[in-house]
Design a protein around this nucleic acid. Structure first.
Lengths: 199, 199
DNA sequence: TTGTTAATGCGACTGGTGTTGCATTAAGAT
DNA sequence: ATCTTAATGCAACACCAGTCGCATTAACAA
């Protein structure tokens, strides 16, 4: 980022309060979970005044959105293991780790997205970016001749990852790493069998 | 149900109140969506006093849970079309219809489940029941020799339906009936190819 | 019909979230 | 060093959601 950013006065104090507040959000989230996350709690822990938090972030959801966009890793890319199956297994391992954590930031933002449009948009953008970047694992598999040309990347990724979201986030049931891996293997096998073709 | 139910005094007034309130919930939900659903709004529309609603249902989530469990169809069973693919396509059509509706009760309960344990439990139970009943479509396919013995019913159902939940509920992106159908076809094809075996 | 009491109606109250006007502090320019 | 003003601190306030005690209504039993 450029040192000027785009804020009107991004100097030391503003940056400090912002850092203190966002850090407090992470700590409160880990300690009390999403349900126990309140603006007052964050303000008290950060040492910043209630009013300041309300003025700059508005709501709990605003805090989460800021944390999500700030924490987004611009350099993220799916692992390149040399095979589609390996890549998908690696991807599912990452997704499972993010979702199965006791106080998952991802799950917290998902919960927030049902209440606040801003959180929904941030999450939607996050996923769009991730799935676009992930499409390369299918492209590489096509180039290697591992799967047929015309294999639908989006559908392959969906078959691999969607069960994790459904079971861990919506159904709230545990899923072992082995089962998560198996969904990745299923998606890879289906792609290799020429089942997941575009039309 | 037996006429006695299990309430202490289930007579005319109680039943009327309950019916009026639950009807109001449905109407408010259709009119204002989940975000605009408030206890006061429901009470005003139903003509029942605020306090009564609070006493009997506690919160908005309690109202939704009651509506969900009341509306649950005990006789539900997956369609028997004669083929695994047909059965899964039919299933996905049902799921998509339930999720894509403008003011979907299912989506409302999902949203509520992130706030209230009772809603989460009700939803969890609802899904467990549905997936257990749905497993028969794989059993039938095995009996017909359409798919190998040892095909994992749960995984087949997950591959077919999870993408719908992920895209429609979490990513909040539209999904055409054609795409929903394709995921059902993918799952059926993968099962036929012997990819989705238990281990 | 009469009596009992669960269920409901009613109003006042509490607690917590979010807002507003003004004073104070400190970042950045000169 | 001094000035300007954005950012923050502070206290008082408004506003809902949710609760509580008590009065009233009506379901069920006798």
């Amino acid at each position: 980022m450029s040192p000027a950013e785009n804020a009107t006065r991004p100097g030391g104090r503003t940056a400090r309060t912002r850092a203190a507040v966002l850090a407090a959000v992470g700590e409160e989230l880990a300690e009390h979970g999403y349900d126990g996350l309140t603006v007052d709690g964050v303000a008290a822990r950060s040492g910043v005044h209630r009013t300041t938090v309300y003025r700059r972030w508005g709501t709990v959801e605003g805090l989460l959105v800021d944390l999500l966009t700030t924490g987004a890793d611009d350099s993220w890319a799916p692992a390149d293991t040399g095979s589609l199956e390996g890549d998908l297994v690696s991807l599912n391992r990452e997704v499972r780790t993010a979702l199965a954590a006791a106080a998952s930031l991802t799950v917290a933002v998902i919960a927030a997205s049902f209440r606040m449009q801003g959180a929904a948009d941030a999450l939607s953008g996050f996923w769009r970016d991730r799935y676009e970047r992930s499409a390369i694992v299918v492209t590489r598999a096509i180039e290697r001749g591992e799967v047929p040309a015309g294999t639908d990347a989006e559908r392959v990724l969906m078959l691999a990852t969607a069960p994790l979201y459904h079971q861990l986030v919506l159904r709230r049931q545990p899923m072992s790493a082995a089962v998560a891996k198996r969904y990745a293997e299923d998606a890879a096998a289906a792609a290799r069998a020429g089942i997941v073709l575009q039309r």
